[in-house]
Design a binder for these strands. Structure first.
Lengths: 216, 216
DNA sequence: ACATGTTCTGAATCCTGGTTCATTTCCTAA
DNA sequence: TTAGGAAATGAACCAGGATTCAGAACATGT
């Protein structure tokens, strides 16, 4: 016996792993998932291509973990806002606004995280985190209903719609092709109030469908 | 000169082209974009792989055109509903409902069309049609504002959010993994009223953000 | 300094599925 | 019936990028 993994090595290993994850973030923020190849990530992390595979089983796993890292952080931020004090409505508005604002700041990265096509593993992770955000909103909607601030509704469905409105409202403007967004503030406000009203408005007696069965 | 493209040949050609496009639809409806490879499509269309390339320059183009065909049809259906008579609110509700209902019917296909990862050309087409739907909704929102049915709002932003709420509200349930959706009706209703209220409710004075600048 | 095990390296390999193209089959007009 | 194209075929080809792996460089404890 002449080798033992010392504390120091352990740290270096961990550190290298972290560096690789950070590199993914950096590369994706720059060239998106599309252009993010393993070799580039390795270079950005200052390691050889093969090293990446000593730390992660595959590209998909690596990228999914990188996304998860980022997304979890955002979830935490939003959840913290949601946990603040105040009415459900104001907390919901704040949560939505914080999400939107942060996304607008890190345009390219946000777009990649939310919408850019990527490996299946990444998609899987996205679904999980979409739901995580959705859960936060769902909790707020339930609070609001409990307090009588919001009308009764399917919290789960509303939360999903809310999440959708939020990301779609953002996606167009965030897309790399779209030019500079001139009035960030207005955009964020529009999205926020859309979401708020959807959830907090008095129940609307949706007119029944008079259109016949639409065929074809 | 001993050959001239006759009427009949012309038709056969056109017909073959159509068959290929239909085959894409069928294959995608079955195995999604992920599993849809050119060879499969060719087989489904009853032609050789190479033939596909006599009609379309590349897989991406073919698939994008197939999506466009489908999407355009849906846009037409929704636009027709939007053009019916009645208040803006009821037309909007109907439009949303029809979209959702039809999507729920053709689960796998709808999911593929709306959300499944695919070639860049397909994504490009998606963006175009997303906007097409969004435009229909935007028109209705404007109508509603003009009539005083809806409060003043950014029609473009609301329409985008609406589109997002609609697709996201659907996507989860439509995803291939998700089991059977038991109460289709309830889902469609929940989505519809979410959208309606978002757009038609009295303006909500969104509480201002008391949370400090969230760092990191 | 050495023996033994570990991590790193990056060029070579492999794989997948889109695309090509030499050949065959099919049309048309004379 | 046949010459002069056009369209169809599908096996072979190829690109691009993930993954591997044989050797080099390191660590550790004696």
């Amino acid at each position: 016996m002449a080798y033992r993994r010392t504390e120091r090595v352990e740290e270096q290993l961990q550190d290298k792993r972290d560096r690789i994850l950070q590199a993914v973030r950096a590369v994706v923020a720059e060239v998106g998932f599309r252009g993010a190849q393993v070799a580039l990530v390795a270079e950005a992390a200052g390691v050889a291509t093969g090293t990446v595979y000593r730390h992660f089983p595959s590209k998909g796993d690596l990228f999914a973990e990188a996304l998860a890292l980022n997304a979890q952080h955002e979830v935490d931020v939003v959840a913290a806002v949601a946990r603040a004090e105040g009415s459900a409505a104001s907390r919901l508005a704040d949560a939505v606004r914080v999400f939107a604002r942060r996304a607008v700041r890190a345009r390219r990265l946000a777009w990649a995280m939310i919408a850019e096509p990527a490996e299946p593993e990444v998609d899987a992770a996205r679904i999980i985190y979409r739901r995580a955000f959705s859960d936060v909103f769902e909790g707020l909607i339930r609070d609001g209903m409990a307090e009588g601030e919001f009308p009764l509704q399917s919290a789960a469905a509303s939360a999903a719609c809310l999440m959708g409105a939020l990301s779609e409202g953002l996606i167009g403007p965030l897309a790399p092709e779209a030019g500079d967004l001139p009035n960030t503030r207005a955009l964020v406000d529009a999205i926020t109030s859309f979401c708020l009203q959807a959830v907090s408005a008095r129940p609307f007696a949706a007119p029944s469908l008079r259109v016949m069965e639409t065929p074809t």
